[in-house]
C-alpha cells in the first residue's frame, strides 16, 4: 500500500490537479496539486503567495488558466447547482452597506433557495453573535462586525464546503475565539473548511492540517505541528552595528547559539537559533571586549523570508 502525499487526503471533497492561474505575464498560481476533505485545512502563505487566487478558483470565482478542479465532484465554473452546498467568506469587504445585517443574510438565503430564509438567516446571525446588531445597516458596522456578518451570509445555506479568506481580519480577541470555536464546530459536523491566512498562529488555532504556499507554488503540506516544527528550526538573522565589528564577529563565532557571522560594509549579520540567548549574551560579551554596540536589530523576520527558507533553504 502506498502512503498518501501530505498534500492529499483520503476522502477529498475538493480535488485540485496541476492547477495554474496567470494574469497576463504574472503567474499567480503555478501547477498546484492537492486535495481537501472534511475538517479544517489552513491555507498558509505570505501576502502574494497565491492563496486568495487558489481559494477563488476553488470557489468558482475565477477560472483556472490550466489544470483541473472539482468541488463535490463538480466543476464549479460549469455547474452552478454546486453552490447550494458551498459558502465563501471573501477577504474583500463584499457586503451591501445599504442593507441591514438581517437583510443581507436573508438575501443570501433567498439567493441560495433556502426554504425558510428568515429562520435560516436568524440562525446564521445567532451563530456569529450578531443578533443585537442585525437590524442596523452594515455601513455602520465595524470591520469585525462586517467580517462576522459575512460569515453568517456564507453559513446561511448550511454549506458542506466553506471557504474562509482571512476570516479573522478585524475581529477583536473575544470575537476571534468565538469564530474559531464556530469553525471547529463546523468541522466537527463533517464539513470541509478551508481557511486562508498569512498568520501562522492564527492557522494553528484553527487547522489541524496546513497547506503552505509561496510564490504561487505549494511549499509544504502536513499537519500543523509539523509545519510549526519546520518554522522553529529556522535561524534568525540579526544585524549588529559596533565600533569594532570584526573583533566582535570573531568572538561571536565561538558562541554556541551562533550559527554564522558575516561582515558586510562594517556591519555584522549574525544567524542564531535563539534570539533570547543572543540578547542576554551579547551585552556582556561586548563589555568584556570593550566594544561599543550602536545597533542590534533582528532582520529578515517577515513571514515571506520564513516561507522562503522553507522552500529554498536560505
Amino acid at each position: 500500500m502506498t502512503s498518501l502525499s501530505p498534500a492529499f487526503v483520503a476522502n477529498p471533497t475538493i480535488e485540485i490537479t496541476e492547477i495554474s492561474k496567470w494574469f497576463g505575464q504574472k503567474v499567480a498560481v503555478s501547477s498546484v496539486s492537492c486535495s481537501f476533505g472534511p475538517g479544517i485545512t489552513g491555507l498558509l502563505g505570505p501576502n502574494g503567495a497565491g492563496k486568495t487566487t487558489l481559494l477563488r478558483m476553488m470557489a468558482g470565482l475565477i477560472r483556472p488558466s490550466r489544470g483541473k478542479l472539482t468541488v463535490l465532484d463538480t466543476n464549479p465554473r460549469r455547474d452552478v447547482t454546486v453552490f447550494q452546498r458551498v459558502g465563501l467568506v471573501p477577504e474583500d469587504d463584499a457586503v451591501y452597506g445599504f442593507l441591514t445585517g438581517r437583510q443581507f443574510v436573508e438575501y443570501g438565503a433567498e439567493l441560495a433557495g433556502v426554504r425558510n430564509p428568515s429562520s435560516a438567516a436568524a440562525h446564521a446571525i445567532s451563530a456569529v453573535g450578531m443578533g443585537d446588531a442585525a437590524e442596523r445597516r452594515i455601513e455602520g458596522y465595524s470591520k469585525g462586525m462586517r467580517q462576522r456578518i459575512k460569515v453568517a451570509g456564507a453559513l446561511v445555506n448550511d454549506p458542506e464546503v466553506l471557504y474562509l479568506d482571512e476570516p479573522l481580519n478585524g475581529a477583536d480577541p473575544v470575537q476571534r475565539v468565538r469564530l474559531i470555536e464556530l469553525f471547529h464546530q463546523l468541522a466537527r459536523e463533517g464539513r470541509t473548511v478551508v481557511v486562508s491566512s498569512h498568520v501562522l498562529e492564527e492557522v494553528e488555532k484553527m487547522a489541524t492540517r496546513v497547506i503552505a504556499m509561496v510564490d504561487g507554488r505549494l511549499a509544504a503540506a502536513g499537519d500543523a505541528a509539523a509545519i510549526r516544527a519546520a518554522f522553529t528550526d529556522i535561524p534568525y538573522r540579526v544585524r549588529i552595528d559596533a565600533d569594532v565589528p570584526r573583533k566582535l564577529g570573531s568572538a561571536l563565532l565561538g558562541q554556541e547559539v551562533i550559527r554564522s557571522v558575516e561582515v558586510v560594509d562594517e556591519t555584522l549579520h549574525v544567524q542564531t537559533d535563539d534570539l533570547g540567548d543572543l540578547g542576554r549574551m551579547l551585552p556582556s560579551l561586548a563589555r568584556s571586549l570593550d566594544i561599543r554596540l550602536t545597533m542590534v536589530q533582528p532582520e529578515d523576520l517577515s513571514l515571506e523570508s520564513v516561507f522562503r527558507y522553507l522552500v529554498h533553504g536560505q
Partner: peptide
C-alpha cells in the same frame, strides 16, 4: 466594483 458579485454569483442561480 464593490466586490459583492461573489455574494450574488456563488449561488445556485443560472447566470
Amino acid at each position: 466594483t464593490h466586490k459583492t458579485i461573489s455574494y450574488l454569483a456563488l449561488r445556485p442561480i443560472r447566470r
